[in-house]
Every structure is written in C-alpha cells, then in structure tokens.
Simulated scan of single mutants.
Amino acid sequence: MAASRFLLLGLLANLAFTAALASDNTPLQDFCVADTKSQVVVNGLACKDPKTVQANDFSSSGLQIAGNTSNLVGSKVTPVTAAQVPGLNTLGISLARIDYAPWGINPPHTHPRASEILTVLEGSLEVGFVTSNPENRHVTKVIQKGDVFVFPVGLIHYQRNVGNGNAIAIAALSSQNPGVITIANAVFGSNPDIASDILVKAFQVDKNVITHIQSKF
C-alpha cells in the first residue's frame, strides 16, 4: 500500500512538473492582427486594437503574378507571412509561391521554425531532404502537377525544376515566420566571414577553393 501511494505521489508530481513547463500553443483571443508601427518588441508582433481591424488585414493579392527567375539559381520565392498579411500574426501558418525557370533550383536550405508541405501547380520538380547526423539519408523523388511533398522542420531540403518549361509550386508552412537559412549563403556569405581555415577543415578542400567560393557571396 505504501509503495502504491509513493508511486501515485510520484506520478502526480511528474504531471504537475510537466504542466508547469507547458505553454500556450494556440491563440488566446480571436486574432492578433500585427501592428506594424508598434515599437514593442515581443516574440512575434504586437497586436492592433481589435476595434481598428479591417478585412484587408486578413488579405493579400498578387500571387497570380509570376516571380522573376532571371537570377543565378533560376527561382523566385514570393512569401506570404505575417509581414505581408498582418492577420496571420499568432496563427502559426504562412505560405509562399515559388517560380522556377527551366532547370532552376530552390537551393538547399532549412526553415528553423516550420515544417513545409509543397504542392506542384505546374511542371515537374525533383525534391529532397537530408536527415540529421549520423545517417544523413537523402530522401528524394520527382513530383508532378498536383503532387505534394513534405519537408520536416529544420531539415535541409531543396527543389529543382526537371522540365523544359517553367514550374510553379505553393508551399504551406507551420509558422507565421518560418525563417530561411540558405546553406551556401550562411556558410560562405556570413558577415564577417567564417575563418577560411575552419572551412578548409570542415570541407576538406584547398584554401583557394574556399576563398573562391566566398568571393561569390
């Protein structure tokens, strides 16, 4: 009996500790439209007075316009986050239109705060992500118009247009501000530079190779 009481007390203490560590993961009000003029710094964006909120705070337009893919990677991401739609603030979602020139890529990158589900609207895309250490398994396939593919939160992933025409995709993300870390830009284009001897050891290449790549960013 004493052992049972001890076990029950331990279980209750564990539940209480877990509850103390928990935090709200859903909004505590109908909405929190971002006040873009506020000087208050919070984890997210400060709220407008609900009485001043209008329908336009929950709306955006322009995703029917193709992005300009005339750049070195051959793609253009057009985001729709809380920065573009203030009504997304605290709702934990966002999306983006991605345009790809023939054989254009959306370079390897991560979203530190969101998982992503990608839907192909036009064309064919090679998509893939790499699992974490030590396996570093490359999960990849080619998806067509109407197909979807999921990129788990935080994992390095990419897309490549494998068709001869333009491709279009819509990405939905599980954060109002998913963040983007493009691997090449972060490693070789940091400000100030990461010391070249560190990169030489990390990539096991000659210093001239590192210097050359850094010069591109």
Rank of each mutant, 00 (worst) to 15 (best):
F149G: 01
L9A: 11
I181L: 13
G189L: 04
A202I: 05
G189K: 03
H138L: 15
K216D: 02
Q84N: 10
V187L: 15
L155I: 05
F188Y: 13
F217L: 12
V40H: 11
A2H: 10
E116Y: 08
A13E: 00
A171E: 07
G165C: 02
T140D: 00
A66W: 12
I210S: 01
H138R: 12
V139C: 00
S190K: 06
N133Q: 13
S70A: 14
V187N: 02
G10S: 13
G163Y: 11
G67K: 12
I183D: 00
W103D: 09
T78R: 04
D193W: 00
A114E: 05
S132P: 00
N43E: 14
V209H: 08
K145W: 05
S215H: 13
L125P: 03
I117W: 07
P108D: 07
G165K: 15
N164T: 13
T110Q: 07
F129N: 01
T69W: 11
A167I: 02
Y100G: 02
G67V: 08
G123N: 04
S124T: 13
E122G: 00
S59L: 12
P50D: 08
K141C: 09
S75L: 07
S196N: 14
Q29A: 15
F31Y: 15
P50K: 07
N68V: 05
G87V: 01
S60C: 04
V53Q: 05
N164E: 14
E122S: 03
D147P: 06
P107W: 04
Q176L: 00
K207R: 13
